[in-house]
Amino acid sequence: ITIHVNGVTYHFDNPEEAEKFAQKMAKTYQLKMEIHNGEFHME
């Protein structure tokens, strides 16, 4: 699972971890999250 946050790329093997991380980042930084081709993009 690949997550892009403001141009920084994070890779996770565990989908649950990826989702937790994505939600935490979105909440902490008030980010808008989109999913493209199974990759999370946040800005």
Rank of each mutant, 00 (worst) to 15 (best):
11 H>Y: 10
14 N>V: 08
31 L>M: 07
34 E>H: 12
27 K>V: 13
22 A>T: 03
15 P>R: 12
8 V>G: 06
20 K>M: 08
24 K>N: 10
42 M>P: 04
5 V>P: 00
3 I>Q: 00
18 A>T: 01
21 F>E: 01
10 Y>K: 01
30 Q>S: 05
43 E>C: 14
29 Y>T: 08
18 A>L: 03
38 G>D: 04
17 E>F: 05
19 E>V: 13
17 E>T: 08
27 K>Y: 12
7 G>L: 08
26 A>Q: 10
26 A>L: 12
19 E>Y: 14
6 N>S: 08
19 E>A: 11
28 T>N: 11
36 H>Y: 12
4 H>L: 06
28 T>K: 14
25 M>N: 02
33 M>Q: 02
33 M>K: 00
14 N>K: 09
24 K>C: 15
18 A>Y: 02
22 A>N: 01
30 Q>R: 01
32 K>C: 15
17 E>S: 10
4 H>K: 05
35 I>N: 04
38 G>A: 03
38 G>I: 04
42 M>Q: 04
29 Y>F: 06
6 N>Q: 12
3 I>P: 00
41 H>P: 02
38 G>M: 03
43 E>Q: 12
12 F>N: 00
16 E>R: 10
42 M>N: 02
15 P>D: 06
38 G>Y: 06
13 D>L: 11
6 N>W: 15
4 H>S: 02
28 T>H: 14
31 L>R: 00
17 E>V: 07
39 E>Q: 08
10 Y>A: 01
13 D>T: 11
18 A>D: 00
12 F>Q: 00
14 N>H: 07
8 V>S: 10
43 E>K: 13
6 N>A: 11
7 G>F: 13
34 E>Q: 06
9 T>F: 06
9 T>A: 14
1 I>W: 11
35 I>K: 03
24 K>A: 11
13 D>M: 08
29 Y>N: 12
3 I>K: 01
41 H>T: 06
21 F>K: 00
7 G>M: 08
37 N>Y: 09
37 N>P: 02
15 P>Q: 08
9 T>W: 05
31 L>A: 04
41 H>C: 14
22 A>H: 02
28 T>D: 15
8 V>R: 11
37 N>A: 05
11 H>Q: 07
39 E>L: 03
22 A>P: 00
6 N>L: 15
33 M>S: 02
15 P>W: 14
2 T>Q: 07
15 P>T: 10
1 I>G: 02
5 V>Q: 01
27 K>L: 13
23 Q>E: 13
15 P>Y: 13
4 H>G: 03
20 K>G: 04
23 Q>L: 09
31 L>Q: 05
